[in-house]
């Protein structure tokens, strides 16, 4: 059985964006318009950051193995490059600096997710260990030759915290905050998670074209908010609700 692991996007927005005035401000565009745009901001911060951590943990486990362990089939997708760099199919190229991820003060860099069809933009991720979470600084690459005109003219940056202990349970909790700027006409946006979102990994065996393979869906549950500005004036705001990937296990406890 040939095993193909692919990170597929499967976050469905059941309710996209509330169409209500923000305090006494007039809502200028419809919920659908703002919700669709807002999703493009929040999904990279939530989903791609989790995928980046998932790839980093896979590589970190590989680095801790002895020579025999590194030859196990589960590490077949890791291709060592020079100067502490490793390319992993479906994730991109990690620059480890020659150190393990869980060493103190270590910061890994991941350049893009080359086979991710929903993310044509080239994001750069900086992954490091925080207190109880993996920290992911994401930003659009300066090299935007392969992306749309919109991406070329914009800047997206976010800081995402991905729960550190949940990888074995295939369910992460994620929080993020980020900013978006568009050079033209001073349009900008801020976006953040409301509390924690959960990202659940669901693996499904499939059969197609005379071969077996495995698809891995990452599904998001939780809320996020997005505010859109022109200069300092608020144009619209949006609360996004992701409803598809409820986790059966929790990694944070509300003791109240």
């Amino acid at each position: 059985m040939k095993k193909i692991i692919a990170a597929f996007f499967a976050a469905f927005l059941v309710s996209s964006c509330l169409d209500l005035p923000y305090d006494n401000l007039y809502s200028k565009r419809t919920a659908y318009e703002i919700g669709s745009f807002s999703k493009n901001l929040c999904v990279p911060a939530t989903l791609y950051s989790t995928v980046a951590v998932k790839g980093a943990l896979h590589l970190n486990a590989y680095l801790k193995e002895d020579d025999a362990g590194k030859k196990e089939s589960k590490y077949n997708d890791i291709i060592p490059e020079s100067d502490g760099k490793f390319t992993i199919e479906s994730f991109g190229t990690f620059d480890t600096g020659g150190r393990n991820l869980d060493e103190e003060g270590v910061l890994w860099k991941l350049k893009r997710l080359p086979h991710n069809y929903i993310n044509p933009a080239e994001f750069i991720y900086e992954i490091s260990a925080g207190e109880g979470y993996w920290s992911v600084n994401g930003a659009l690459s300066e090299d935007k030759s392969a992306v749309s005109a919109f991406i070329k003219a914009s800047k997206i940056a976010f800081l995402t915290k991905v729960s550190i202990n949940a990888s074995e349970e295939k369910c992460w909790t994620v929080s993020f905050t980020g900013n978006y700027e568009e050079g033209k006409d001073e349009f900008r946006s801020s976006f953040k998670s409301e509390g924690e979102l959960s990202v659940k990994e669901i693996t499904t065996p499939s059969y197609s074209m005379l071969q077996f393979y495995t698809t891995t869906d990452l599904k998001i549950t939780g809320n996020a908010s997005v505010t859109l500005y022109k200069g300092n004036d608020i144009l619209d705001w949006c609360k996004l609700a992701f409803r598809s990937g409820d986790c059966t296990t929790t990694t944070s406890q509300d003791n109240s």
Partner: peptide, 8 residues
């Protein structure tokens, strides 16, 4: 669309 300039 993808951009605020387009939406607005």
């Amino acid at each position: 669309g993808e951009s605020m300039a387009y939406i607005y």
